[in-house]
Computed example of a mutant assay.
Amino acid sequence: MNQEKIAALEEIIHSRYSNTAGMIVLKNGETQYEGYFNGCTAASCINIFSVTKSIISILIGIAIERGAVQSVNQKVLDFFPDFPVENYNEGETTIRDITIRDLMTMTAPYKHQEEPYLEYFTRDDWVSTALELLGGPEKSGKFRYTPFIGPDILSGILVKATGQSVLDFAAEHLFAPLGITVKGNVTLENEEAHYAFMNARDVSGWVMDSKGIHAAGWGLTLTARDMAKIGQLYLDDGKWDGKQIVSAQWIAESTREHSRWEELNLPYGYLWWIADDNAFAAMGDSGNTIYVNREKELVIAIASLFKENTGDRMDFIKECVETMFA
């Protein structure tokens, strides 16, 4: 790649996306660019925020393939048979009606208008908190983005279905085959610890609540190289070093449109955003991104440090990176 073009690209990163920790571009599986910023290196572990959701999507697919979960049509309550079901008013959606698919497509209804973050973070059982809020006057089927509370139910389902913690299941069936190391569990006992974790770059782990359930909507740390591996796995239809890690059928199904955030006109798969007919992305707060373009055989991984009010990286990817390397 022409060094002048690289310099121009990095100037854009410095000036417009100054919280970038690292970026990797793969073309046909070969590294075309790898750069690090803000004192970060290839070993820096970054909180990938909502990119964690797409990792959970992969794990649900693996659990289905292994027979631990029947399908996305299985009812949520199948995994929590002892959960007390409240009395609902006539016409309301109850927890009995809601499926894994509803959670995966962000179309499950909740009783709250806005996610009760304070209640969520101060409770010691995030899954029960989410289950208590599930259902209400709205019907399933309308997109409603719930970045924290909804996905945690999927973590609870994985634990119930596999008999393993989410991290142990991921380590065995996803991370280890890809050569990814996530060293341990992270617990955040207070607000200070929470903000310290969000700004850390040397913590390898996955946030969990006091019940041992890992957060599904955020809280996993990966390196930029780890993120690129996940993207390449999906570009290669779930194969890694000749071994099928996740089924090609699940990848195709989870990266096609199942719902749409109408206000922003953003199509959504199973915890993956759909960029267009040939491209999809895992996107997290502060610009964390795994972008895959099937047609151009391109993977772009961007790890970003926490920064408030930071938009996504799709315009940057489409206008600057993709045009340069495709």
Rank of each mutant, 00 (worst) to 15 (best):
Q70V: 07
N293W: 04
F280D: 03
G29A: 06
R96G: 07
N185H: 10
N199P: 10
I95K: 01
P147G: 13
E172P: 05
I302F: 04
E10G: 04
Y291S: 03
R201E: 05
A161L: 04
M198E: 10
A282G: 14
F169D: 00
G136D: 02
E132D: 07
L134M: 14
I180N: 14
D97E: 12
Q244Y: 07
G141P: 06
F83V: 05
A252C: 14
A8S: 09
R260S: 14
L118C: 05
D312T: 15
I213W: 00
M227S: 08
A7C: 05
T99C: 13
G242L: 12
I274K: 03
V246D: 01
A326H: 11
S71F: 08
M106N: 09
A196P: 10
F148T: 04
G150H: 02
L188N: 08
S54M: 11
A301V: 08
I6M: 09
E189F: 03
L188D: 06
D241N: 08
G184Y: 13
G141A: 11
Y234S: 09
A176V: 07
L133Q: 11
G205Y: 03
Q113C: 06
D236M: 05
E322W: 08
V72S: 03
N28T: 15
I48W: 04
M23G: 03
G205M: 03
G242A: 14
Q232W: 09
W218D: 12
A193T: 02
Y195F: 11
H112S: 05
G231N: 04
R294V: 14
F83G: 01
S286V: 05
N265T: 15
F121I: 13
M23D: 10
T223I: 06
C320E: 11
F49L: 12
R294S: 15
A281F: 13
V321I: 15
C320D: 12
L9E: 02
D315R: 13
V127G: 00
E119V: 12
H14G: 11
D237M: 11
K75E: 00
K160A: 12
W261H: 11
I12D: 09
V203M: 09
S50E: 06
S304G: 06
F80K: 07
K111S: 08
G284C: 04
S140V: 09
L103K: 00
D312Q: 11
S210F: 07
S54T: 13
E132P: 02
H194G: 12
I302G: 02
Q70D: 08
T52M: 03
N89W: 06
T146N: 10
F197I: 03
I153E: 00
M198N: 11
G269P: 00
G212D: 10
K160G: 03
V299S: 01
F80P: 01
S15L: 04
D315C: 10
P177L: 15
G205R: 00
G179H: 06
Y17T: 05
A21P: 13
A161E: 01
V72C: 06
L233C: 15
A301I: 07
K296C: 14
A196M: 09
M198R: 10
E4W: 07
Q74F: 03
I24L: 13
D124T: 12
L26C: 11
L305K: 08
I274L: 10
T94M: 09
K111C: 09
G205L: 02
L235S: 02
D97P: 06
